[in-house]
Amino acid sequence: MKLSKQFFLFMIGGVIGFVVDAGIAQALVTWGGWSAYYSRLLSIPVAATATWLWNRRQTFASHESGRSLFSEWLHWMALMGVGALVNYGTYAVLLMVFPLLHRWPAIATAGGSLVAAVFNFSTARLMLFKGAKTSA
């Protein structure tokens, strides 16, 4: 698969992850009374799992990780964890600079997600789904 198509599919997965992430964070703040900071501690891993499901079936369908399903998910979570730190760091800075975003964390989530997207694609492509699938 061409890199441009792979990147496009990865970005679709990113949009799915963003909707999950921002939706959970916003719901926890609005209806659960959670802090904008703590809401992301739940929303990020759920969103990362959603993006893993999409990317393993769509973006990297022609590649394999050579791992069991659970091991692949753990590896994905570890790799995306580094991107999540970039994402959360950007998010926290946006909350500090724009206090109004504490009520609207979905907006700050978008900023963090955009900054982390290229980093996450690179680590997924170069470190997890690096081998072409072989026909069995």
Rank of each mutant, 00 (worst) to 15 (best):
M77L: 14
L42I: 15
M96D: 14
L69Q: 04
G81I: 02
A47W: 10
G83H: 03
A92V: 15
W52G: 03
A61R: 14
N87E: 12
E72I: 10
I44A: 13
L85V: 14
G89N: 11
A92Q: 14
N55L: 05
N55P: 00
W76V: 04
V86K: 05
M96I: 08
W52F: 15
R40K: 15
S71V: 12
Y88C: 08
R57S: 14
W73S: 03
A47M: 01
Y88S: 04
R40D: 05
N87F: 04
M77Q: 14
T59L: 01
V82R: 02
W76A: 13
N55C: 05
Y88N: 08
W73K: 08
T51R: 07
G81M: 02
S43H: 07
R56G: 01
S68Y: 02
M77D: 00
L85Y: 00
M80T: 13
N87P: 08
S65P: 00
T49E: 02
W52A: 04
G81H: 02
G66S: 08
P45N: 06
F60Y: 11
Q58D: 04
R57E: 13
A92Y: 12
W52V: 08
A50N: 04
A84E: 04
E72N: 09
L74V: 10
G89A: 06
F70A: 14
P45C: 06
S68A: 09
G81R: 02
G81P: 01
V82G: 04
P45F: 10
A50W: 02
Q58T: 12
H63T: 07
F60D: 03
V97F: 11
